[in-house]
Design a protein around this nucleic acid. Structure first.
Length: 516
RNA sequence: CGGGGAGUAGCGCAGCCUGGUAGCGCAGGUGCUUUGGGAGCAUCAGGUCGCAGGUUCGAAUCCUGUCUCCCCGACCA
């Protein structure tokens, strides 16, 4: 954010000036998604969906590596399935879309209305999550201890009628994967819950280059019906926290309401212990707010639909054919190289138009490497390379670096991997510098999150793990400061000292932050 | 759902108060010049003013309703 004033950034709004407007601008200028005309629903455009496809593909591989099999369950869930689990229905009731009719009829005024004759016997809920319908299937599929563990996942859309929506972060309809597993006992189910959490943590770090803290949510933040909820929490550039993935140990509650039982080795009927875990298109919102800058998106190479874009500087004259031939050869040679365990994704952008204009479009999309190739490069066997994460030179000029063609081809995989690492390192350094420790009173906490401190980040506190009414009191105190407890980290040094809220000895640590 | 703001050409906006032929910038087409780095000049095209009613001789403009978006709150795996 400390660029000299002479730099003319690609976006019209900076993060510093208005972070929320900047976020919207990145999505629009990178052409990732747009409004659909339906409240809270978005059209995901090729660049945004391409990123999602990269996320899906790599997450799916990790899910399958863990022995989980993909299935697909219905979009519509009978209302009665929800009613079986009291906490669950209460948690979701206020945000469910409900189908009540199966036919329309003319209203006599040129419009259409639901046909009263076609009212459904039982309303159908558009799934906000699928524990109930998958639980019903598990009850049919599981008979014996030999059927366990049952490990399933589905890639699906879900609908939650949120009050306030934001592109990618909270949309009425979103895309996700939801893993659902059933186990013989608590230990096995908890191991699966934590395995999924670790899968999400490493995926966020390695693939999204997004540093996260994996930990357990406090009881007031638990998934409706869960016994324990774990999350990965990422810090956005405005210091707010984003819950980027969750994993739940559901105990036997869902098994009891859905009748998921098995006969153990001794012949006794037992309830299964179930888990569920998910990540969604929200991850893309996180990538934007962790890696984006005042020139638009910066996509980590591992999820970039294109990692290298070649822009020939077409002159619309006889030299173009030779230039394009050089660029095509360059593209082919690069596409034969591999980085991050995959072939490089290289696009030769032959569309008509000036290379400079196309360059800024790709800068805003955040493609990791841009090559601009002119006639002299082609003649001299050179390339001109721009790294998206090192866009500007000290003097305020665009940071193109000239290289020999063959040297670049040899170096490209290393550059792509270096960009992946650099984005992670930059985000981790920022995150670490914005975690405040040593705050020892409520006044100091309030002071730290005062208006003047614009991007305060997170505060790490010792925590006595209060429950029930004592926890509610803490939550209310924090709410007055617009703060929430994010999670208790899974690892780290032992704690000492007092809990700032209760005065009792601290037994673990928590992170407190503003959040999305 | 409460408070505030907005919806006019592909995009960004003015016009509305005080009703009278729909404007500007960017993007787009064409021509010329220029071009190793986010070009210049000329010219052309593009809009039932979110939608539905109402008032009026006449509505982008006034009134009512409605939908969508943004900000703040409430809510939120």
């Amino acid at each position: 954010m400390n660029q000299p004033a002479k730099i003319k950034h690609a976006l019209s709004v900076t993060r510093e000036a208005d972070f929320a407007a900047w976020y919207q601008d990145v999505i629009a200028e990178a052409d990732m998604a747009e409004e659909s005309g339906v409240r809270g629903c978005m059209v995901i455009k090729p660049w945004g969906y391409g990123i999602w496809e990269r996320i899906q593909q790599q997450m799916d591989a990790r899910i399958k590596d863990a022995g989980v099999q993909n299935c697909y369950f219905p979009l519509f869930i009978p209302l009665s399935y929800f009613a079986k689990e009291a906490e669950h229905v209460e948690g979701f009731a206020k945000e469910m879309a409900v189908v009540t009719h199966h036919r329309l009829i003319a209203d006599g005024k040129g419009g259409l209305v639901p046909d009263p004759e076609a009212k459904l016997e039982e309303p159908l809920v558009v799934r906000p999550t699928s524990e109930t319908v998958i639980g019903a299937a598990m009850a049919r599929w599981i008979q014996s201890w030999r059927d366990l563990p049952l490990l399933t996942n589905q890639w699906a859309n879900v609908v939650r009628w949120e009050m306030r929506t934001r592109m990618f972060l909270r949309t009425s309809e979103f895309l996700w994967q939801e893993g659902h597993t059933a186990h013989a006992d608590r230990a096995d189910a908890m191991a699966e819950t934590l395995r999924a959490l670790e899968m999400y943590r490493s995926f966020a770090e390695d693939v999204l280059a997004m540093p996260v803290i994996a930990g357990e949510k406090p009881e007031n933040e638990r998934f409706p019906g869960a016994v324990a909820t774990y999350s990965i929490e990422a810090m956005m550039q405005d210091g707010k926290a984003l819950q980027a993935g969750t994993s739940h140990y559901l105990g036997t509650g869902f098994a009891e309401s859905a009748g998921i039982r098995y006969q153990d080795r001794e012949g006794t009927q037992q309830f299964c212990h179930t888990t569920s875990w998910g990540v969604s298109t929200r991850l893309i919102g996180g990538v934007i707010m962790v890696h984006g800058d005042d020139d638009g998106l910066r996509v980590p190479p591992a999820i970039a639909p294109q990692q290298i874009v070649i822009l020939p500087m077409l002159r619309e004259d006889d030299g173009d054919a030779e230039l394009l031939s050089y660029c095509e050869g360059l593209r082919t040679a690069l596409a034969a190289e591999s980085a991050l365990g995959e072939r490089l994704r290289v696009l030769l952008d032959k569309r008509p138009g000036k290379a400079t204009q196309k360059r800024w479009a790709w800068v805003k999309k955040g493609v990791p490497l841009i090559l601009e190739i002119g006639g002299r490069d082609a003649a001299g066997g050179q390339v001109s390379v721009l790294r998206r994460d090192r866009l500007w030179r000290e003097d305020g000029k665009v940071n193109f670096v000239g290289m020999g063609r063959d040297a670049f081809i040899a170096a490209a995989p290393g550059e792509i991997e270096a960009i992946q690492r650099a984005l992670h390192a930059e985000a981790a350094a920022r995150r670490d510098s914005q975690i405040q420790r040593g705050i020892d009173s409520l006044d100091a906490l309030a002071d730290y999150f005062s208006e003047e401190n614009r991007y305060p980040g997170w505060v790490e506190l010792g925590w006595s793990r209060p429950t029930g009414a004592a926890l509610e009191a803490v939550v209310a105190t924090l709410k007055a400061l617009k703060l929430t407890i994010r999670n208790t980290p899974m690892d780290g040094p032992a704690v000492s000292g007092q809990c700032l809220f209760t005065g009792l000895p601290a037994v673990e640590r928590i992170y407190v932050a503003r959040s999305y």
